[in-house]
């Protein structure tokens, strides 16, 4: 039984020029204890998905259609009060700590304790403190740093503190939105291992959002590749990495630098950004696809099953042609 299943979800932002469809008809589900990664470039809608699952969409955004089923409840009809009850308790978010994710004028421990107290009002002061210490041990920050202020923490420690905050009430689902983007690679690696370790130890579900496919590959078991508000390929990590099918996934993977090959790096000419307000009826990627045919911009692509778990949102020619064709 999936803990979260999203069906045909579309989310739009009301803009001056019209409704911008940031997320267009996406479906995915995640089982308890599994980890799912969303990869895609800036503006492909991955953060919008994360914010929707937290009920934190900005005022000009709205769910246009679809269902979000979380722990057998439909999140689409949730009132603000109902959201407040599950936020931080059943579903929590790991933010990027490099930004001001921690309030500069309150002690870090106090800010984490807030998350505990809000959802466990009956806790005594000692119980809260015990929980706080446990969390600090879990994310490997020395206990004596509990009463420090955010500016006294290093970047990596802030990120750990943010993770501790998300774990405060042992949520069923954790959404990590670019949690390591601003950290240097060594700390990044430590944090990723930390997230993965805790997720497995506590048997939580994890949705990991990043533009960095290598990072997603390190943490997640399943991967969804997004482009222009749509999922265009999904499958297990091995399937997507070893045999990418969609032309976009192929370009994404081939744009990676490799130190031990002299191969010319294929940085594709992604000249055009698809218009999300007045979208073309066909494939959104067709303007940049080097496998396209004339039909591609007219007819919408469909899901093609490659294996039981591996799917691509394309047309038959797109999958059969080679990338450099």
């Amino acid at each position: 039984m999936a803990i979260l299943s999203v069906d045909n979800l579309s989310i739009g932002y009301q803009t001056k020029k019209g409704m911008l469809k940031a997320v267009n008809d996406i479906s995915f589900s995640i089982e308890q204890g599994r980890s799912l990664g969303f990869v895609g470039e800036s503006g492909c809608g991955k953060t919008t998905i994360g914010m929707t699952l937290m009920g934190l969409l900005p005022d000009n955004a709205s769910i246009l259609s679809g269902n979000i089923n979380f722990m057998e409840k439909d999140l689409c009809d949730f009132s603000e009060d109902q959201w407040r009850n599950i936020r931080g308790k059943d579903v929590a978010m790991i933010f990027q700590a490099a930004m001001n994710a921690l309030n500069p004028v309150f002690r870090v421990g106090e800010q984490i304790a807030e998350a505990i107290v809000t959802h466990n009002p009956a806790f005594s002061k000692n119980e809260v403190n015990d929980r706080l210490k446990k969390l600090y041990n879990m994310v490997e920050i020395p206990e004596h740093r509990i009463s420090d202020f955010p500016h006294e923490y290093s970047g990596g420690m802030k990120q750990r503190a943010i993770i501790a905050m998300a774990l405060a009430c042992s949520p069923k689902l954790i959404i990590a939105d670019e949690p390591t983007t601003a950290l240097d690679v060594i700390v990044q690696d430590q944090i990723l291992k930390e997230i993965k370790k805790i997720q497995q130890a506590l048997n939580m579900s994890l949705i990991f959002i990043s533009h960095d496919i290598a990072v997603v590959a390190e943490v997640c078991e399943d991967i969804c590749v997004m482009y222009a508000g749509q999922i265009i390929e999904k499958g297990s990590k091995r399937e997507v990495f070893t045999s990418p099918k969609h032309p976009y996934t192929k370009t994404l993977l081939s744009s990676y630098l490799s130190l031990d090959s002299d191969e010319n790096i294929l940085i594709p000419d992604m000249m055009e950004t698809p218009d999300l307000i007045d979208a073309n009826p066909g494939c959104q990627f067709s303007c940049n696809c080097n496998c396209r045919s004339t039909e591609c911009s007219k007819n919408a692509p469909g899901w093609i099953d490659i294996s039981k778990t591996h799917k691509a949102f394309c047309c038959e020619q797109g999958l059969s042609r080679t990338n450099n064709g």
Partner: peptide
């Protein structure tokens, strides 16, 4: 600021 979103994500009430 981001810490306002963090505070919302914790499930804090709007008044707090």
């Amino acid at each position: 600021e981001d810490y306002i979103i963090t505070a919302r994500a914790k499930g804090l009430s709007e008044r707090i």
